[in-house]
Amino acid sequence: MRPRWTVLAALATGIGVGLAGCGQPPAPAQPHAGGQSDPASRADPAAGWADGYCTAVSHLVRTLAGLPEIDPSSPLQAARTASRLLSSVAGGIDRTIAGLGQVGPPPLSGGEAARAELLGELASVGARADDVRRRLDVAVGADATRSALGEARSAIDAVSRLDVLKGLDATPELTAAGKRASGCQQLVVPPAPS
C-alpha cells in the first residue's frame, strides 16, 4: 500500500481550522538536509535524489507548520492575517519549486513526468494563493472580505490536495529509493492497519 502524506494533510487541516478561528498546528521536526552532496548519496544515487526531493518538498511542510494564525476578531483582522498566511504559503511553494529544480530529474527512468507535473501544480497553486492574497489586500466591505476569505480557504484546500510524493510514487524503483532516503522517512508514515 502507498505511504500517506500525513504531515501535510494534518497541517492543511489545521490551516482550515485556523481560517475558522482556531489555533495553528505545531511545527514538525526539521528534515535531514540530504541531497547529492552526502557521501551516502554518492553511493546510492537514487536514494540521494529521493533525499533531495523530500528535502525540497519539506520546505512546504515547514512553511505550513509556521504559518501565522488567523485573527477572527473582525473581518478586517481576518483578511489581514489571512493575507499574511497566503503570502507565507506562496513563499513556501516558491522554495519547494526552487528545491525541486535543483534536485533535477531522477537518475532512474519514469519519474521525470511526475516531478514535472508536480512542479506545474505547485506553480498553479502558488499563483492562486498569491492572487487570493492580493484580493484580500484590496477587499472593501464585509461582503467582499467574506468572499475573499472563502477563496483563501479554497486556496489552502488546494494546497492540501497536492500529492507532493508523486515523484517518488512514479515507479517501484523510486518508491524503494525513497524508503532508503532518511529525509523521506521524516515525511511519510505507513498506512494505519485496517
Rank of each mutant, 00 (worst) to 15 (best):
E117R: 10
G16E: 09
R95S: 10
T55C: 08
V7P: 00
A181I: 07
V57R: 02
E121V: 05
G183K: 06
S160D: 10
L118M: 07
L136T: 00
P106L: 10
E69H: 14
A20G: 07
V140M: 06
R161S: 12
L60Q: 09
T55V: 09
A144L: 15
T171L: 11
I70S: 14
R134C: 01
A129W: 02
G99S: 05
C22D: 11
P28C: 15
R128W: 07
Q186T: 12
V132L: 11
V140A: 14
G34W: 05
G91N: 05
Q77H: 15
S194N: 12
I97Q: 14
T145Y: 14
E112L: 10
D44C: 06
R42W: 10
S37H: 02
V61S: 12
R95P: 00
P3F: 14
R146S: 12
P28I: 09
A155P: 05
P75V: 05
T171V: 12
G150L: 13
V125W: 04
T6C: 07
D38H: 04
G34T: 04
A114R: 07
A148D: 03
A90I: 04
D169S: 13
S147Q: 13
L60R: 02
R133E: 06
A114L: 10
P72Q: 09
M1N: 07
G150A: 15
D71Y: 13
Q102L: 08
T63V: 03
A170G: 06
A123F: 13
T175K: 12
Q185L: 15
A12T: 01
D143C: 02
V89I: 12
T171H: 13
A116W: 01
V125R: 03
A43H: 03
G14Q: 08
G91H: 07
